[in-house]
Design a protein around this nucleic acid. Sequence first.
DNA 1: GAGATGTATTGACAATCATCGATATAGTCT
DNA 2: AGACTATATCGATGATTGTCAATACATCTC
Lengths: 131, 131
Amino acid sequence: MTASRHNNGERTVIPLQVAGCCDDVATAPRNPRLNEQVKLLSAIADPTRLRIIEMLSGACDSICVCDITTQFDLGQPTISHHLKVLRDAGLVNWEKRGLWVYYSLNRPAFEEMTGYLSGLLSATQLAGASR
Amino acid sequence: MTASRHNNGERTVIPLQVAGCCDDVATAPRNPRLNEQVKLLSAIADPTRLRIIEMLSGACDSICVCDITTQFDLGQPTISHHLKVLRDAGLVNWEKRGLWVYYSLNRPAFEEMTGYLSGLLSATQLAGASR
DNA sequence: GAGATGTATTGACAATCATCGATATAGTCT
DNA sequence: AGACTATATCGATGATTGTCAATACATCTC
């Protein structure tokens, strides 16, 4: 039963989707990029990985995996796994130099994610202010 | 083995953590709010919940649960569960009016999250520009 | 070539999570 | 009071995920 079809009870008394405001509210955006954003967000929605991102964001350059591993009470394969998740999401760059591997933050990818989230906030403001 | 202790191989040839740049790179931030951020990010790192957030952000006002449920090929208890996750994370406000429950985006909480992520980006810039 | 070292991959396991059906709760209407 | 409706909660189940030990791979040194 859609909002606009309620015709009794308090439902119609409350001027929410009535008064011509946002009539298409019930239409889900079905944003085609939604799944990409979910992948990016899932990648950083983990305490270990977010802490790695913080390390990378605070560094002026790449960080050696060996310097990341020592910061956690986790095994080396586990850290390697988390780095792979970040890699697969495209959030980090990596480069092998000799025996060591260096990771750095992929700024454009991170910016796309934050831009998307900020866009959601401004969408609310616009919707609220446009009437 | 810490980065600064490498004394052979190509490791020391690359001027990354040397040259006095970001010597504390190996010190993880241990941000006390990190777990809060993980909770917020986990809440929206799901296709159903992110789509709900998109709906709420695009609406000028609260949205009735009944109008959310119809947009998904999911059972009503499942939608209710996802709304509870968003509620527990503090990302949405909700209000019961008569028989219906209305949800809206908790803008300050959402702004805190986006602000945190934007802060990570500027931290990179600062670190990179400060030398 | 042989040994040593840093990192990635594999396979297994326990924990978490998304989903569902059934049920409970709370409000409305007759 | 009783029927009805919208939403939340509960319990179970299959899928996903974080972690580890073992192993593989690549590179360096001798």
